[in-house]
Amino acid sequence: MRFAFTEDQLFFRDAVRDLLDKECGPDVVRGAWPAGPAGAGARSPAARVEAVWSRLADMGALAVALPAVGDGLGLGPLDWVLLAEETGYAALPHPFVETACVAAPLGVAAGRVATDLAGAVVPFAAGADTFLLRRGGELVTVAAAEAQVSPVAAVDGALAAARVQAGTTGGRVVAANEDVERAFDRGVLGTAAQLVGLSQRMLDLTVAYVRERRQFGVPVGSFQAVKHRLADALVHLSFARPAVHRAAWSITHDRPERGRDTSMAKAMASDAAREVGAAALQCHGAIGYTVEYDLHLYLKRSWALAAAWGDAGWHRDRVGHAIGV
């Protein structure tokens, strides 16, 4: 029994964390939003947004789970779950989960991947190179040029979401039967990990804010009502995180409880993100309710991801079936 990550896994996480800290600040996330009032606040040019993706590729973060030929490391969820958490913390405006966690293990290395496994509204579809789509009991890859992509305006402007349609023939079959479920579970896990990262980001932002912001002559973070709200947020986050890490282990070892554990992770991470997000917004007061301030970038991503890949209710139901309730 050892419920902890290896030195190597933590080391890689730290490297990705440092990279995203430098290269994917809120200005970069905002740079991925459409211009206009909704994208107000400091924003980076498109080139910087693109650069983050290349830098992640350069350091090998996108090829962790690619089969171990060529650039691939052939590693599993325990090796990428912490990276997914970091991409959540940064609200990375690129399809890390879809590309590195879902498609790569299927041997798909064709640029940015978006997939309808996440739901009918496909995140990061607008800039995808390749689509990974359900067709019957199989997953097929379709080049972006061969699909019909209808962009939609999502609340999270950096989500670059679209509805995607492709023909009933063509494309390449990359998974069938149980492997489709495995791919789905990897996406669920990656998304749950991102929600944990997003929750951590929102909590960190809020803690920093309430320590600084003064009312009645004292920092608002000294008020018990604020303390207790944020303590509850911390509790939610602290107990969702191990559920996510356990699911990474269950998928890595293809345990019989894989589906149950993955769904538990997503249900808890989605619930935690909702609780933490609500506390973050409330404890910020009016400043949090603007688009100039950074909180909304993370809050809106957390809403999107909580609803994608099955929401908390859907996954709770799946857990229920698994435990005979």
Binding site: M1, R2, F3, A4, S238, F239, A240, P242, A243, H245, R246, M264, A267, M268, R316, D317, V319, G320, I323, V325
Partner: peptide, 19 residues
Amino acid sequence: IDGWMRAEAYQLFTLATVT
């Protein structure tokens, strides 16, 4: 189901603490 998940999460949290 929620009760089951919360108990399970407490077990996991504890395993991490003991590690």
